[in-house]
Design a protein around this nucleic acid. Structure first.
Lengths: 200, 200
DNA sequence: GGTATCTTGAAATCAACGTTCCAAGAACGC
DNA sequence: GCGTTCTTGGAACGTTGATTTCAAGATACC
């Protein structure tokens, strides 16, 4: 059975991720995808299905390769606050410099666009949020067990705060925010988290 | 000179704001605008210009009527931390309940979509950010002068942190985040701000 | 090597997009 | 009332969107 594709679907999907990541679903045409991947429309449709399925595949891949990976690092790091600090440092670096500078986070972008109207996308975004929150929670619990956090601190709420802070960083990076400013902001915020539960 | 329009451009623009606010620029067609306003395409073009000008006018109006107004309340309130608390309480209320529930903030949405590619839009978003940051800054300085904040606290960085937190709230509200959860998160975060500079 | 099966490329389809054009109509100054 | 000037409704424009179709080409099995 000649089921042999003349291209690598995985490599193609990588380029599709970058397109949707930078420009969003609404402003990325199938033609643009075809041009960027060097593939014909027929091959795209035969391999991935329509535009919706293509975007979903790209989003899933982005979440797996970028978001979930970074979250796992934070949760499994074992150092607590330093892990969170490193997470934000890496995030700001990635968002403000290098090939992905100014693209923000694909999941964050999906929140604000028409993508979130799709129930499937909505589910992925909720899952993404839960994972981010969970990772922060784990790291904060580690910090607390190490005495880096007051025993009375509300870890759940603090984790959610850090998640929302990350969303803010991702968002502002798309408008060209300076890395230095974001670093200082996050530094101060994490300092406040470290001092949390001390008097409030 | 019969320069008499058969409709109220201001009222029409109000509806346009709501359309672009909820759905974004890319996924809102001129046809949809015409239907929502009850106007003919000719009238739209004659009054506002093309789609880009229409979106810009809507964004400017949103910023003036919603964002800047709320920022001014915070800055001029004079109570400091309670004003910030009230700002967030009102924000969460507006984003999670009532006619605009799940729409997020039009400026935040513009960050994540193709709108931010327009230099004019970019300028408005930067201005918006500066105003939000400035308002938080003013309120925090008030708080510090009242002893509600440690004298050693980094007010600038704290203001930016609160701005990013607001972005996060706006973003997650578009995915249907619960008001109660957001309220608790913001409460804890503001408590940490109040305790800021105490040990970090 | 022949054949069945899948991929591929290019053209075709159909709808929706933003925008423009124009005749018809309404309101003001005279 | 008349002419001018603007608004209005509707049709038309050309482009671009996503998706489908189909012949041609390529591959693996026999």
């Amino acid at each position: 059975m000649p089921d042999i594709k003349h291209f690598d679907p995985d490599e193609a999907l990588d380029r599709v991720v970058r397109l949707f990541w930078e420009h969003g679903a609404a402003t990325t045409s199938i033609q643009a995808v075809a041009t960027a991947t060097g593939l014909n429309r027929s091959s795209l449709y035969a391999t991935f299905g329509g535009k919706r399925e293509l975007y979903l595949a790209a989003l899933r891949r982005y979440l797996r390769d970028h978001s979930h990976r970074a979250f796992a690092f934070v949760a499994e790091d074992g150092r607590g606050l330093p892990a969170i600090r490193e997470f934000f440092a890496g995030l700001i670096e990635l968002r403000c410099t290098g090939p992905y500078a100014g693209w923000g986070c694909m999941a964050v972008n999906a929140h604000a666009g028409g993508e979130r109207d799709d129930p499937e996308v909505r589910g992925l975004l909720d899952d993404h949020h839960e994972r981010l929150r969970g990772a922060m929670c784990t790291a904060l619990l580690t910090a607390r067990s190490q005495g880096d956090l007051s025993p009375g601190a509300d870890v759940d709420a603090a984790a959610e705060t850090l998640a929302l802070l990350a969303y803010g960083v991702n968002l502002r990076s798309r408008a060209g925010a300076e890395a230095a400013g974001l670093r200082r902001t996050v530094d101060v915020a994490l300092g406040a988290v470290g001092a949390m539960g001390a008097s409030g």
